[in-house]
Amino acid sequence: MNYKFFILCLLALPFLTSCEKQSEKDREKILNYIEDNNLNAQEGEDGLFYVIEVEGTGDTASIADEVEVHYEGFLLNGDKFDSSIDRGTPATFPLANVIKGWQLGIPKFKEGGSGKLLIPSALGYGATGTSSIPANSVLIFDVEVIEVL
């Protein structure tokens, strides 16, 4: 038996269990948010939830595309942490350069489409967070896909 492999597996077990527990907590928080706000949300890949409010009629982005979007980002308690609307100009970026939740979520909307992304922490900023987003935070984004470039 390869004892080094066995020891590595034992050391990784608490981390995997911790990630799984956080994922379950995030899912419960998101489901409560959906219920509390009477949203018609769909569950996508990897725990992402999304709400399409306006279908849109244009192209759909892929990971290889650059997109122009307007958005507002909130924590579950309603605190806004970022907004292209407040800055008065849409954000443009390669989809490959943003958090996993956006990489999975933005392609759910066509150009001209809008709605919400409800992103579990593992698809956001995870256990590290950022200066304005605490660790293990579920993120709520109101998004409008203006253009797929």
Results as ranks from 00 to 15, higher is better:
Ile52Tyr: 14
Tyr3Met: 08
Gly115Met: 07
Ser137Leu: 04
Glu72Arg: 05
Val138Lys: 01
Leu8Tyr: 05
Gly44Asn: 09
Ala64Phe: 14
Ala122Trp: 11
Lys110Trp: 05
Tyr50Ser: 09
Ser114Glu: 08
Ser121Cys: 01
Asn2Tyr: 04
Lys108Gln: 12
Leu104Asn: 10
Ile119Pro: 12
Leu39Tyr: 13
Gly105Cys: 06
Leu75Arg: 00
Pro120Val: 01
Arg87Trp: 09
Tyr50His: 10
Leu16Ile: 12
Phe6Gln: 12
Phe74Thr: 04
Pro107Ile: 00
Cys9Gly: 14
Gly113Gln: 11
His70Asn: 14
Lys25Trp: 03
Asp36Phe: 09
Asn136Lys: 03
Gly73Ile: 00
Lys80Val: 01
Ala91Ser: 14
Ile34Arg: 07
Leu75Pro: 02
Lys108Thr: 02
Ala64His: 13
Ser132Arg: 06
Met1Leu: 13
Ser114Arg: 12
Gly56Ala: 15
Glu55Lys: 08
Cys19Arg: 11
Ser83Val: 03
Pro134Ile: 04
Phe5Cys: 06
Tyr3Leu: 10
Leu104Tyr: 09
Ala96Lys: 14
Leu95Asn: 07
Asn32Trp: 05
Leu11Tyr: 06
Gly47Leu: 02
Leu31Glu: 13
Gly115Tyr: 06
His70Thr: 11
Leu10Asn: 05
Leu10Phe: 09
Ile133Gly: 08
Phe5Ile: 08
Phe15His: 11
Pro107Asn: 02
Leu149Pro: 06
Phe49Val: 07
Gln103Lys: 09
Ile106Tyr: 04
Ala122Cys: 06
Ala12Ser: 15
Ala122Met: 10
Lys21Val: 15
Gly113Lys: 08
Leu139Pro: 15
Ile119His: 08
Lys4Ser: 13
Val54Gln: 13
Val143Gly: 09
Gly58Trp: 07
Asp65Leu: 05
Glu45Arg: 05
Val51Glu: 14
Phe74Tyr: 15
Gln42Ser: 15
Thr60Ile: 10
Lys29Gln: 12
Asp79Val: 03
Gly124Met: 00
Asn136Ile: 01
His70Ser: 10
Gly124Thr: 04
Ser121Ile: 03
Phe49Leu: 10
Ser18Cys: 08
Phe81Arg: 06
Phe49Ile: 12
Phe81Lys: 04
Ser137Asn: 04
Asn32Val: 15
Pro107Thr: 01
Phe6Gly: 04
Ser83Ala: 07
Lys21Thr: 14
Asp82Trp: 04
Asn40Glu: 15
Thr130Asp: 02
Glu144Tyr: 10
Asp59His: 10
Phe6Tyr: 13
Ile63Ala: 11
Ile7Lys: 09
Thr130Gly: 00
Ile85Ser: 01
Asn77Ala: 03
Leu76Lys: 03
Lys80Arg: 05
Tyr125Ser: 07
Lys25Met: 04
Lys4Gly: 07
Ser132Asn: 06
Glu147Arg: 13
Ala127His: 00
Ile85Asn: 01
Arg27Ala: 05
Asp82Met: 11
Leu76Glu: 06
Leu8Met: 11
Tyr125Gly: 07
Gly88Phe: 13
Glu111Gly: 06
Glu68Gly: 02
Phe93Gly: 12
Pro120Thr: 01
Thr92His: 02
Phe49Met: 10
Phe93His: 13
Tyr125Gln: 06
Leu13Arg: 08
Asp59Leu: 12
Ser84Asn: 13
Gly112Lys: 05
Pro120Glu: 00
His70Gly: 07
Leu16Phe: 15
Ala91Gln: 07
Pro120Ile: 01
Ala122Thr: 07
Pro14Trp: 02
Ile7Glu: 04
